[in-house]
Design a protein around this nucleic acid. Structure first.
Length: 282
DNA sequence: CGATTCCCCTGATAGC
DNA sequence: TGCTATCAGGGGAATC
C-alpha cells in the first residue's frame, strides 16, 4: 500500500511528465471516488485546466491546476490512494469495455485493470487513477480551501524534512504523552505524516522496539534509536523508489534476518503488526 | 473526551 | 465443484 516513499516516488515520476500539460477531457466510471465537488462540476473545473505543479503532503498527492480564463482561483486536485489506489501515466484504449494499455506493462502490473478515473492530456497521453478496492479519495477545490482541509491541515511534520530533527521528534512524542502503543503513534498522521502499516513495522524492527510498547515508556536511547530507524528506513525506501522493503511486514512464520527467530503477527486495532519476538522487546 | 466498532470495497483464501 | 464467510487495510464517522 502506498505510504510516504511510494507516494513520493509517484510524485517524482509524474513531475517531469505531466507538469505543463493541459487536461483536455476527463472520464470516470466510479464517480463516488470523487468526494467533492459533483462529477458535473468536477469535469467543468478540470477540463481545460493546466497542470502547474505536483507535490506530496503525507500520503496525499496534490496536483495544482491553473486559474484558467480568470474565472476561478487556482485549484488543487487532492488524491489519497488509500490501500490500492495508483496513479498511472500512459496511453490506454477502450477494448471490450476495459481500458487496455498501449505501452508495455509488466505482467504482474494488474493496476491497469482497475482504472476508474482518467485525465486525457494535451500531449495525447493520459493520467489514470486505478483502484482495485475503490477506496481512494479525490477532492477538487480552490487551493486555499484544499490546504485548509483536515486532510492536510491536521497532518504532523514531514519526517524527511531537515527540520524534523531528533529534538523535534522526541518533543513531539513527549508532548503527546501517549499511552498508546508506539506502532499506533507512528501511524497517527497527526503525529508524523506519511507512515503506515508497512513502514511502522519496518521502523520498529530496525529500532528493535516492540510494537506494543507504550509510547510514553520509551527511554531516551530508544527514542534516539527510533528516530534514526525512522529516517534510515524512509530515506532508503525513497532511494529505492518505494519498492517497499520487507524485513518483517507480512513475513509471519519466516525467520528474522537478524536472529533467526520466527516473525510473529499480532493484532493492533484492526491492523496487524509483524515483529521479531526476540529482537524487539517491550 | 478517549476508546472501540463499523463502514467503505473486492480479491484471495478458508471452510463446508 | 461451488457456494458462503472471513479477512485485509487508511481513515473518517458513529457509537459506547
Amino acid at each position: 500500500m502506498p505510504e510516504l516513499p511510494e507516494v513520493q516516488t509517484t510524485v517524482s515520476n509524474l513531475k517531469n511528465k505531466i507538469v505543463g500539460l493541459r487536461i483536455v477531457d476527463v472520464w470516470v466510471d466510479t464517480p463516488q471516488l470523487i468526494k467533492k465537488p459533483s462529477w458535473v462540476e468536477f469535469k467543468k473545473q478540470t477540463k481545460g485546466a493546466k497542470i502547474e505543479k505536483i507535490s506530496r503532503r503525507g500520503k496525499n498527492i496534490l496536483i495544482y491546476l491553473d486559474s484558467r480564463f480568470k474565472i476561478q482561483d487556482s485549484r488543487i486536485l487532492l488524491i489519497h490512494q488509500k490501500l490500492t489506489g495508483r496513479l498511472l501515466y500512459g496511453t490506454w484504449i477502450m477494448k471490450h469495455g476495459a481500458w487496455t494499455p498501449i505501452q508495455k506493462v509488466p505482467v504482474e502490473e494488474k493496476a491497469n485493470q482497475y482504472i476508474h478515473l482518467l485525465f486525457f492530456l494535451s500531449n495525447g497521453k493520459m493520467l489514470a487513477l486505478s483502484d482495485l478496492r475503490k477506496l481512494a479519495k479525490v477532492i477538487l477545490g480552490p487551493a486555499e480551501e484544499i490546504l485548509n482541509l483536515k486532510d492536510i491541515k491536521k497532518l504532523g511534520p514531514e519526517p524527511l524534512e531537515k527540520s524534523f530533527n531528533v529534538e523535534k521528534f522526541i518533543k513531539t512524542l513527549r508532548q503527546a504523552q501517549d499511552k498508546r502503543k508506539i506502532k499506533e503513534v507512528l501511524m497517527d498522521q497527526e503525529i508524523i505524516a506519511g507512515i503506515g502499516n508497512v513502514y511502522s513495522d519496518e521502523i520498529l524492527w530496525q529500532a528493535k522496539i516492540h510494537p506494543f510498547k507504550p509510547a510514553r515508556r520509551l527511554g531516551s536511547k530508544e527514542l534516539k534509536d527510533l528516530y534514526q530507524a525512522l529516517k534510515d528506513v524512509l530515506e532508503k525506501a525513497v532511494k529505492l523508489r518505494g519498492t517497499d522493503i520487507r524485513r518483517v511486514y507480512q513475513r509471519e512464520g519466516e525467520l528474522c534476518f537478524r536472529c533467526g527467530t520466527k516473525i510473529k503477527r499480532i493484532k493492533i486495532g484492526g491492523r496487524s503488526a509483524h515483529f521479531c519476538p526476540k529482537c524487539q522487546r517491550i
